[in-house]
Design a protein around this nucleic acid. Sequence first.
DNA 1: TTGTAATTTATAATGATTCTAAAGTAGTGT
DNA 2: ACACTACTTTAGAATCATTATAAATTACAA
Lengths: 147, 147
Amino acid sequence: MVCYKFGKKMNNNSIFIEKLRSSGLRPTKQRLEICRLLFDRKKTFHFTITDLCKIIKKEINKKISLATIYNTVHSFKKKGYLKEISVNREKSYFDTNTSDHHHFLDIKTNELIDLKKEDVDKINIKKNLPGKKITSIEVLVKIENNN
Amino acid sequence: MVCYKFGKKMNNNSIFIEKLRSSGLRPTKQRLEICRLLFDRKKTFHFTITDLCKIIKKEINKKISLATIYNTVHSFKKKGYLKEISVNREKSYFDTNTSDHHHFLDIKTNELIDLKKEDVDKINIKKNLPGKKITSIEVLVKIENNN
DNA sequence: TTGTAATTTATAATGATTCTAAAGTAGTGT
DNA sequence: ACACTACTTTAGAATCATTATAAATTACAA
């Protein structure tokens, strides 16, 4: 969900309102606040729902209920504004970068770092499963400190 | 954990007992039963802990407590007899195939299918993160029915 | 056989997520 | 501006998976 226009950051909510309306979601106060926290950023943002709850508690005056946070993240995911990346049993991240890309995962800190599609040579799967077609190929590169 | 010898399936537990002892785990009745269910198979086996609980309930006369099932799976993972593959928020699988390999995931059924390393052209990561080294590269190929 | 540390067990506790039903709100038509 | 309706939010309960606890049991070395 783009929040920059003519290279200049939009300070208002008009784009979020448009976007939400155009995908059939009413632009409520809660959704707009969450949009602002998630999408008003230069860099893509990786977060768990627990992370988001903490950020909301810290940054927003009025409380947003837990159920609403879950509902909002799930509807944003369903509408394609968020992508989910599950790295292990404990951590499943949402990613504001919904383009086709890959990830590094620091196995010590669980930090997730975007890896552009262009930074990985084309992946060629030599095995073909009859009756099935490939819908996406996701690469997770696990990393750790170099010493 | 190998359970075939001279191409012939071992009907007894001696290999499991050896293996467990050699990795510092006492070969208890419960662990041996779970070994038998997990490793006495021709094909690699993908399961969630919930799956395993059901299988144990069905196949084993004497009950194994839930805590033991969790403990056993986690210690087998720690000892390198199982590999964990997290495909989404709802499903995290354990895989008896601990070799370096990849997976297909049927996004409709959540079925996981092994993909041999040789069936994927060498993955070349062109981006380098300073101070970090790569410990593994995992590819998840999402598939669905072809119609 | 005995002692001890590892293991298993039932149950309680925790934590994340979903459900529920009532209250509140946005958008439409008047 | 007003009223209506469907959508949304909310607090709290319910559910589900997982982990912690502490007592009973077991493996195994002496």
